[in-house]
Design a protein around this nucleic acid. Structure first.
Lengths: 219, 219
DNA sequence: CACTACGCGTTGCAACTGCAACGGACGAAT
DNA sequence: ATTCGTCCGTTGCAGTTGCAACGCGTAGTG
């Protein structure tokens, strides 16, 4: 466990926690590290999702399966990210969501209720942990809302504008750098890559936007 | 304030709180009720969203505005629901989101940090409150993920199937009751009402689904 | 150098679907 | 009963876009 402490300190969940407190805290929480090989399932069956997972290395895909068995990858998460929190406090019927190691992965598991129910306030940083977790969930929430806002547009052009507008707001510049390749961008917008390229070109021709590679500008 | 206590007890945020504790707790938190007329803005400018709002009566729309001033209604919230939580813990640049009273509305405001930072543990239920809030945010999260899952489908047919499949899973029956009218359903699927009707009929003709009014069945 | 894999732009085509317009059914109010 | 408003199904049409296929350039690998 010792060897993970240094990097854990930088993780959002542990913001504000002091190095010397990490080991006691992890012990107090009953944290355990497990390794998964690429392709293995961290299959959180709906009733025993009582752990939250923090990715230490590798990557985890959140996969949703419908009643015919069609799988859709919803999110890919990397180092530092948290998963399972949303389902750990699920009162209601949870969707059948699986987590899947999309590369060799190390995960630190913490029992959700130990994180939430402070151990009679003995460790000072417990509350800090809860606050951090709330912040993390809230941030995910915001990201999801942003995504919904974009992909709820009916036409591709609107999606693109919505997305660019959003990025512009975030980055505060007129010159927007998109952190995605064309394929990923199309994927994010839930559209076809070729259709995206086509529409981008049309929009440039019409003088609505300008771009070069991943640098965009709204005119 | 007294007069609100009874109904507040049933709200998700106050689950598990005893009646006699409500008044002291609300005082401790510094809760305030404000009224808004239909059409008024509860305009949470991004830097002073330090309150969470609990809707006591009426309805509140969450509205997103892009850089050209086009407004989109993201969610309509009703009695019992919470808003503002997502932005109260925002570390990063928040999107410009406004809240808007879509009918005459009463809102109970609670300062976010008072809710989070327990008042030196004096009131027993404080922790309960925090737990409840985490649960509420997590639930919203799940709802959003479900929505994303549905509307990220490329074809209308896929959206419909995804939605029905989801509802079937939730309701546990083969006979699915959709709590939405056609207009609202189309709205939820981010598509056109007529297109929705058309596709539903096609799917019925092809023997994929069957339905009558709002009762659906997957074959 | 040759070979391969990958990301990206381009294009033709057919199907999908957004849009607008119309009409019927139903309920509320006058 | 009449009128109005709302919800919903239907249909024609044109523009959009998903799909498949091809070609180019670059990077990595033998």
């Amino acid at each position: 466990m010792q060897k993970y402490v240094k990097q854990l300190l930088d993780y959002p969940l542990f913001f504000g926690v002091k190095e010397k407190d990490m080991i006691p805290m992890l012990n107090c929480l009953g944290g355990k590290v497990r390794k998964f090989k690429k392709g293995e399932y961290i299959f959180f069956e709906q009733d025993d999702v009582r752990q939250i997972g923090i990715i230490i290395s590798g990557s985890v895909d959140m996969v949703k399966e419908d009643i015919w068995g069609n799988k859709t990858m919803l999110v890919r998460m990397k180092k530092e990210e948290l998963f399972g929190e949303t389902f750990s406090c699920g009162v209601e019927q949870s969707s059948v969501v699986s987590f899947y190691a999309s590369s060799n992965t190390e995960v630190l598991f913490l029992p959700f209720d130990r994180v939430m129910h402070s151990c009679s306030m003995t460790c000072v940083f417990h509350h800090r942990l809860i606050e951090n977790m709330v912040a993390i969930i809230a941030r995910k929430n915001k990201q999801l809302m942003e995504k919904v806002e974009v992909i709820s547009k009916k036409s591709l052009r609107e999606k693109i504008m919505s997305y660019l507008s959003q990025q512009a707001q975030k980055q505060g510049t007129k010159y927007i750098e998109i952190p995605l390749g064309r394929v990923e961008m199309a994927d994010f917008l839930c559209t076809d890559r070729s259709a995206l390229t086509r529409e981008l070109n049309t929009m440039r021709d019409e003088g609505i936007i300008d771009f070069d590679k991943n640098m965009f500008q709204i005119l």
